[in-house]
């Protein structure tokens, strides 16, 4: 260890913060990059159909696309309201 090392202030460096932020961001952007291009449209149209019958919010539906070597999974998640009011 060098003499100078004793005088270094030890705190989380900004570089490690940058690395952490980038890793999260890049992972997120890569996962959305591999999604089929029809996904946003699919989500929009599904929401329209569901809304014909149940009153759900815009953000109550999430479409997730996952891909691994053997299979592709399309996951659809709809959060129904506590007291569903049917639209007449």
């Amino acid at each position: 260890m060098s003499l100078l090392d004793y005088f270094k202030i030890s705190k989380a460096s900004s570089a490690s913060l940058a690395k952490e932020r980038l890793q999260i961001l890049v992972a997120h952007e890569r996962s959305s990059r591999n999604q089929p291009s029809y996904l946003p449209q699919l989500q929009k149209e599904l929401l329209e159909v569901i809304r014909k019958y149940i009153n759900v919010e815009q953000d109550a539906i999430s479409v997730n696309f996952e891909q691994n070597d053997t299979q592709e999974t399309l996951e659809l998640n709809i959060v129904l309201p506590d007291h569903p009011t049917k639209i007449s």
Binding site: S13, S14, A15, S16, A18, K19, L22, Q23, V26
Partner: peptide, 13 residues
């Protein structure tokens, strides 16, 4: 000094 991303950091990302 921990002020800049290292080669390994960038390569890893």
């Amino acid at each position: 000094l921990g002020e800049m991303l290292s080669v390994n950091d960038v390569q890893e990302i």
